[in-house]
Design a protein around this nucleic acid. Structure first.
Length: 457
RNA sequence: GUAGGCAUAGCUCAGUUGGUUAGAGCACCAGAUUGUGGUUCUGGGGGUCGUGGGUUCGAGCCCCAUUGCUUACCCCA
């Protein structure tokens, strides 16, 4: 059989032991903070019904969903005319009814609706699982990556928003990030701005354009708005809002003045202020909290708060995001249930921590001692000792007999095992075993009990 | 979807205007060392130069195509 050159699909990666240790450090840190704030973990299947996912992420998003082909002779079940039509969308619906999850929020909404009778609201859940996107990979962008989501459904309180800011602050600070910004905005403010220029029905174009202010500047945004049917007059009206400067309080005051004529706009200001007040009572440790009204994000289901987290220490896209959606479960038939949530992008956080060299030297959580013996007799002699070590919760291994000592010690070094125990004829005769410190190179002869005691310390 | 860059040993990469048998470091295996590694020395295995075509007396190098990877745009974690 011809051998195939081994490879993994574009944008996916293997994780070796050293990487897993670091990844688990990130996951464990985030999970511990989630738990501390009262969130409970759930998991949902890697695949969902395609119909559950389509239409939730906009036109672009739908294209990025990985579809799973039906099983069996699925082509026979499809109308031949349809196949010949070459209409991708309709043919897809005929040959695929499952897809890999694209994010954790939509599956969660489905979960809430399906389990509504067993859930105690407000329901605070967290979820740490991979998601898949058929995107073009590039720096910090993968086709399989983990999201760490925390959401609350069934609570309108803005305390939730404030707690999410605290969770970001605490979790990212715990991982050693020193300089990062939590940007916050409110969809109602954006609605107010649209109202101001009587373009409420075109809020998507407006938000998409002003979201780019950092990248393409005011001129670029103006140009894009003109192309999308906004007038010079409109742009003049909203210009002061887009170009807001100063402290969060100053921005808020200015917004209130500009949006005075918009009920919804003022509501957005009120909400932001409430969140800021909650935070003021519990000052953040590390994060900067910045009201940024250019923050719009693509997701069109946000209705209140919008979050995005960026590190200022390295060049990297956002490492977290989230917001409030008043009616996410509505599309699954459960109306009027509000939700707010955030997400950590674990893979990007990994890249950031790696670049900043912030991973702790997790004192080799691996094997602590390797027993090396010179022959089969030594191996037999070592077995009770191995059991004794493991009964004392000392991670230990016995190198199978037959290999040269050099090879066994090489193995210990490669695995970064800090201690070895040598067992040869001398040791078996005297009962004094040779314990070797692989870092210092020193060794001493001790009875088994002493060794266990010493390694346990 | 749009545009650029790269492809040579398991890994990271050299390879001169196109010229004889394609190199280095790391890793691996063996020996120096019959009971001692992480430093040293010696030797060894490893290659369809991504694939296919073309130009040429001659191609790792030039041209065309193709595949894969990668970076940026769009969008996103």
């Amino acid at each position: 059989m011809a051998s195939i050159k081994p490879s993994v699909p574009k944008g996916t990666r293997d994780f070796s032991p050293a990487e897993m240790a670091k990844r688990n450090y990130i996951f464990d840190t985030i999970k511990s903070v989630f738990r501390k704030y009262g969130y409970q973990q759930i998991e949902t299947p890697a695949m969902e019904n395609l119909s559950t996912l389509t239409g939730k992420y906009g036109e672009e998003g739908d294209k990025l969903i990985f579809k799973i082909l039906n099983s069996g002779d699925y082509l026979l079940k499809v109308d031949q005319q349809l196949l010949l039509s070459l209409n991708v969308q309709r043919v897809t619906a005929g040959i695929s009814e499952k897809a890999l999850r694209y994010d954790l929020t939509v599956p969660f909404a489905r979960y809430v609706v399906m389990h509504q009778n067993e859930i105690a609201f407000p329901f605070k859940r967290f979820q740490v699982q991979p998601v898949w996107r058929a995107d073009r990979p590039q720096k910090g962008r993968y086709r399989e990556f983990y999201q760490c989501d925390a959401d609350v459904v069934g609570s309108e309180s803005l305390l939730n928003e404030a707690e999410f800011v605290m969770i970001y602050d605490e979790a990212l600070g715990k991982m050693g990030l020193k300089d990062f910004t939590i940007k916050i905005n409110n969809r109602k403010i954006l609605s107010g701005i649209a109202e101001l220029i009587d373009k409420s029905d075109n809020i998507t174009d407006l938000t998409v354009a002003i979201d780019k202010i950092d990248k393409i500047g005011l001129d670029g945004v103006s140009k894009e708005l003109l192309e999308r049917g906004f007038s010079e007059d409109d742009i003049e009206k909203i210009k002061p809002v887009i170009l807001l400067q100063g402290t969060n309080e100053a921005k808020l005051a200015s917004l209130r003045a500009t949006l005075a004529g918009s009920v919804i706009g003022i509501k957005g200001c009120d909400e932001i202020e409430t969140v800021l007040n909650y935070i003021a009572g519990n000052p953040l440790r590390t994060a900067k909290l910045e009201l940024d009204i250019t923050l719009a994000r693509g997701l069109n289901y946000y209705t209140g708060a919008i979050f995005e987290v960026k590190t200022n220490e390295v060049q990297m896209g956002s490492i977290g995001g989230g917001g409030r959606y008043d009616d996410l479960t509505g599309m699954f038939g459960l109306k009027g249930l509000t939700g707010v949530g955030i997400s950590f992008g674990a893979d990007r956080i990994y890249d950031v921590l790696e670049e900043l060299d912030l991973f702790p030297q997790t004192a080799s959580q691996g094997t602590k001692v390797l027993i090396c013996c010179f022959d089969a007799d030594g191996e037999k002699f070592a077995l009770p000792l191995l059991k004794q070590l493991r009964d004392s919760d000392i991670p230990s291994e016995l190198y199978p007999a037959g290999a040269k000592i050099k090879k066994q010690l090489d193995y210990a070094n490669a695995r970064q095992v800090p201690f070895t125990i040598m067992i040869g004829s001398d040791e078996m005769q005297s009962g004094l075993l040779t314990l070797k410190d692989m870092v210092s190179g020193g060794q001493e002869k001790l009875p088994a009990d002493e060794i266990v005691k010493k390694l346990k310390a």
